[in-house]
Structure formats: C-alpha cells, structure tokens
Nucleic acid binder design. Structure first.
Lengths: 246, 246
DNA sequence: CATCCTGATATGTCCTAACAAGCGGACATA
DNA sequence: TATGTCCGCTTGTTAGGACATATCAGGATG
C-alpha cells in the first residue's frame, strides 16, 4: 500500500517543518487521501521522501498520535485510525466555538459590576483580601434562541473589561487581546434542573434539564484569571470530547 | 534558585530514561520539593546533571508541559505551574475511578443478552449486517447508594463476557484482560431529567437532574469495541477535567 | 504436522551537534 | 535621565546516526 501522500514542504516558511507535516497529513486524512485503516509508509521512507530527518518526521507523527489520528505499533507500522475523531476538548470559549461553526452568537449583558471580591471568589481566584474583580452575567443566544446563561468573575489587574466590549466579543477574546496567555483550566461538568430564575431567561420550562459547567482558567504565569459558572440548555448543547490513552 | 532536584536515574532499568525523569519531577512537584512557581535549571544544565542528552531531557519536559505541570518560555526558562492540577480526563472506567478513591462500588446486572446487533448499534460499532453483540444494563451503587445506570453494547469477536464477571469487575477491566488495548474514545456529556424508568432505579424523584454520557471506545487496531449510554445522578457525580492549551 | 527458531521490518530510545529566535538586562548614547 | 541598541541566556528546531526491541512470517526441526 504505497501512500499517495503528496505533501509540499516549504523550507523558507516560518512554520516549523514538523508542523507542516502535521498539517499535511491531517488534511490528507480529512479529505480522504489517507483512508481510515490504511497503513503509512515507514518513518524512514517517509522522511526520505520529504527530505526530512527521521526525528522531524517522528515529531510530526507523535503529535498526530497524541491527537488520536494515527496509531503506531512497534514492529508493525503506523496506520490511520478509524472515523470521525473530533479534536480534543480545547481551551476555547463558547463564543469562538459558535462563531467558527458559522452560527451568529449574540450576547446580552444582564448585569455588570466592578467591585470588591467576596470570600468565595477570592478563594477561587486566589486573591488577597480587599481585591476587586469584574462580575457579570451574560445571556448567550444563537439565531435568537437562548442557549447559555453565564456568570463570571475576572480579576481586574490584568486588563480592562467594559460592558460594551462584552456585548460584541467573547470574554476569552477580550482577555487574550489584553495580553493574557491562557495555559490551562480546571472544569467540572454536571446537571441541574432549571429554576424560576433561569427558566424564563432560557425560554424553557421550570424543571427542564440544564448542563452546568464551572471553570477556572490559569494563565502562563500561574495566575488564576477567571472563574465562572455557566448553565446550558441540555436540548441544545452538550460537551463532546476525545479521550486519548497515553 | 538552584533546584534541589534530587533524581536518581537507573540506566539498567527497562523504564525509558525520559520516563524516569518525568516520574521524578512529578514526584518532586507533588511532595513539595519543587514549589509551584519555582524555576527549574535550564535544560542543558539539568541534562548534564543527570548525565542525559538534551533531547532526552526535553522529551521528559515536553510530557510535563503537555500534562500541564510545567510552563516553558523561550529565552526565560521553565517553571512549575500552580498547584492543584488534576490529571487530564483519562480513558478509565467509573469502576476504577471509584475503587481508586477508596469507595466500594457494587454492580447489579439488570439485563444481559448476547444477540444480533440492531441497525443503530451496527452503525455505532461499525459492524457488518448479521453481527452479534453483548448488550447489558448495569446499576452501579456506592456504599449502597445508586449512582449510575449504564447500558452498553460490546462486540463479541474479541473476548467473552459473562454476567457473573460483570457483577464483580468493571467492564474495561474485563476487556483489557481479554487483550483489548484501548487507544481513544469519543464521548459526549449532557443532561436530562429522570424518567419513570430511571427514577426508581436511581432512587431519585422523577424530574431530577441526571448527567448523561455517551461513549464509543476504539482499540489500537482501530476497531470500535464498545459503545454505551450512561446516566448519573447529578447530585452525586460530575465530570472533572483539566484542559491544557497547546 | 506442530513447534521452535530466526531473520527482516518497523518503531522505540538515546546520543552528539548545530543553528535560530525570543526575552531581558546591561550598556552606551543623546 | 531617558532611550535605544546589543548581547548573553534559554528554549525552539533540525539533522544524522546508533542500537534496542516488539512483531510477524517463513523455514528448520522434532
């Protein structure tokens, strides 16, 4: 099974070679050039074909294995794994997710305040007594239909946040523009039933199922930047992810 | 900040050197030898100190960065990221999760069958017409309290599954013993409210919130081994995970 | 005919070596 | 004093080679 892999490597590009290979193989898998289950040429031949060293080729394949697109077996070879694998759950905002899918998200800011943090917020964000935070509640709609009710607390010593900015942009986008480099987030997903406050806002009956998500995000300096409590209509939203065994 | 890092590398061990380094640094972070926020020595010095090459050292640090324990910045250095980071969501079973936490899970097998797969199951597991599968429903309790209602379909051409085995062991444990090497799983988490069938089994009122999880697991040969639909009592269970920016 | 051994193949691990590029402080200059 | 440039430090990328080890097929052996 000679692979029809037809990659072009641009050595003058600022994009690292191994990353160009990753993108090339990813594209080949998605457009069907590399069928699920098919075997790739061995690492050494592939590297030779692209005029790359074996370590570079391996680094590219490592990433694809980690992403769950390829499977390697010692002594046997490397093959394309089956099926519609979604990318691993990423550190992105709902706004970006929706926008990239072609939907038109809108945001209503139900409340907005810049005030001293209470005890539980200080604990969640690891702030000293007396520190102040932004606190706001937003309602996210898609095509006029309410989808999520989101309450967030954000530390105020990084970048300024305004109510008008929140109306047109996602929170993560605003923070990134303000120089925040997110590194990781802890989140917890659960379920509740809609109460009298949530139900009318989400235009769903009291007692309807809602997905809950609590998240605290940390930037590259180790600061906890943001914590939030979101609820989503269960009939419109769920969390999809791919788990990879390492 | 000279690191007190005191690792011992055993070159005669079958454990790869880079993995020994990963374990050593992981342990140092967890026992406090490496404090959150502290800077590590640079790669070259660290490698020299352990008599390793820089690529080996880097491979170890790569893994720790991916796991969210370390943060690297070009031109600056590498530091330990803030504290209570849970390990990324893993491909494990509820049974193992509970057992490793010291709880005593019990399993009731509500139904068990070995029969021809219907169309939707064949699609989920990518099976040909006429193939047969195991189909079973289990109720998982912890300390006598019901927690999860789990319905699964498993292909039957890999290993034998018996009702009695399911009563004492987790499904993933059984499959792994049967030679299955899981590689990845796609899962979706959402919410529903308990219906008349689920409520009495889970000893919760009709209309209570439940967390739902649908999962399909793939082994290292690309076969879809197992698909299932689980519901959990929302007041007793939620999914916790750490997302890492790459 | 069944079993064991062996060799070819492919990935896994580890090394040395070199240059590129971002960051930040030191230093020189206006 | 303020500012801009330069240089050293550290991580990022790439190369090329060597040996280890799991797997599988085919041949030798009982």
């Amino acid at each position: 099974m000679a692979s029809q892999l037809n990659l072009s490597i641009d050595r003058s590009s600022p994009v690292p070679l191994y990353h160009q290979v990753v993108q090339g193989i990813e594209a080949a898998i998605h457009n069907g050039t590399l069928a699920p289950g098919s075997r790739l040429d061995n690492e050494i031949d592939l590297a030779a074909k692209l005029n790359l060293s074996r370590p570079t080729m391996r680094k590219a394949m490592d990433e694809l294995v980690r992403a769950g697109l390829l499977v390697r077996k010692r002594g046997v070879g490397t093959q394309v794994v089956a099926s519609q694998v979604r990318r691993s759950l990423e550190l992105s905002s709902l706004f970006d997710d929706l926008a990239s899918r072609g939907s038109k998200p809108t945001t209503e800011v139900l409340s907005f305040a810049h005030r001293e943090a209470d005890a539980s917020t200080r604990e969640a964000l690891n702030l000293p007594a007396g520190a102040s935070v932004y606190h706001f509640v937003r309602l996210r709609k898609v095509d006029g239909k309410p989808l999520a009710l989101m309450e967030n607390w954000v530390r105020d010593d990084i970048t300024e946040i305004t109510e008008s900015a929140l109306r047109t942009r996602g929170m993560y986008d605003i923070l990134r523009s303000g120089g925040v480099n997110f590194r990781l987030a802890n989140q917890r997903i659960g379920a509740v039933v809609a109460n009298e406050y949530q139900a009318p806002l989400l235009e769903t009956p009291v007692g309807a199922a809602l997905v809950t998500m609590e998240r605290t995000a940390v930037d590259d300096t180790g600061r906890m930047v943001e914590t939030g409590h979101h609820v989503y209509r269960a009939d419109s939203y769920s969390f999809e992810m791919t788990l990879v065994q390492r």
